[in-house]
Simulated assay, not measured.
Amino acid sequence: MYRPTCPADAQPADRAEMAGPGQHPTVDAWQIVIVHVEGAWQPALLTQWRRLPTGWVAHVRWRQTQDPGDGWAWLRHDPTTLQPLTPDGIDAAGLGA
């Protein structure tokens, strides 16, 4: 399970709110993004958006490991920690040449 390692990291969605009553509309979205997790900007794949009573959350996978519960999470949408991949983001995530 994902836990932020520094104050600048993306925050996970509240599990109780995710499982709470009412409808939580979900929208599929395949988008390359950068996300601030584990103390750094990392490239990631955003696969879904979900609307909760307190705002949007995104299903994001930033790495694939042997542990299926590692390297992905439902994260609260915050433009300071989750951004579309842009030329500036390529440099921030260390993907540039």
Rank of each mutant, 00 (worst) to 15 (best):
Q66G: 13
L82A: 07
G22E: 09
G71K: 04
D67M: 00
D88P: 10
A13G: 13
Q23T: 07
L82T: 02
D78V: 08
G20C: 03
P43L: 08
W72S: 05
Q23W: 00
P25K: 02
P21L: 03
W49I: 00
D14I: 03
R63N: 05
W62E: 00
D70H: 11
W62H: 01
A40F: 03
H59F: 12
E38F: 00
D91T: 15
R15A: 14
A73S: 12
D70E: 15
R50M: 12
L52E: 08
R51M: 13
A13N: 06
W62M: 00
R61T: 14
V60T: 06
Q23E: 06
E38C: 10
A29Q: 04
R50A: 13
L85G: 07
R51G: 02
I90Q: 10
D14L: 05
A10T: 03
G71P: 01
L52D: 08
E38V: 02
W41R: 06
A93N: 03
M1G: 07
L45G: 03
A29T: 04
A97I: 09
E17I: 12
T81Q: 11
Q66V: 09
H24F: 08
W62P: 00
Q64T: 14
G22M: 07
D14G: 12
H24R: 15
P21H: 08
W41A: 04
A58F: 04
T26E: 14
G20R: 05
T80Y: 08
D28F: 11
G96M: 07
A44R: 03
W74F: 06
G39W: 10
G89C: 08
P25C: 03
H24K: 15
G94F: 06
G69L: 15
P25H: 01
D91I: 15
T54K: 11
V33A: 09
A29V: 06
Q42S: 07
W62D: 01
A8R: 15
W56R: 15
G55K: 13
I90A: 09
Q66H: 10
P68T: 06
A19E: 12
G94D: 04
A58L: 10
A19W: 14
A97T: 11
R3V: 10
A58P: 03
T80W: 01
R61C: 08
C6M: 09
V35Q: 02
Q31R: 13
H59V: 04
A40H: 13
D91K: 14
T86H: 02
G39F: 08
R61G: 04
A8I: 05
Q64M: 11
G71N: 03
Q11L: 15
G39I: 05
L46T: 02
Q42V: 05
A16L: 12
T81N: 07
W30M: 07
V60P: 00
L95P: 05
H59N: 14
E17V: 14
A97N: 08
V57T: 11
L85E: 02
V37P: 04
D14T: 07
T26Q: 12
P87L: 07
Q31M: 09
D67F: 09
Q48L: 10
W72V: 01
V37D: 07
P53H: 03
T47L: 10
W62L: 00
P79I: 02
D78W: 10
P12M: 06
A73I: 03
G71W: 10
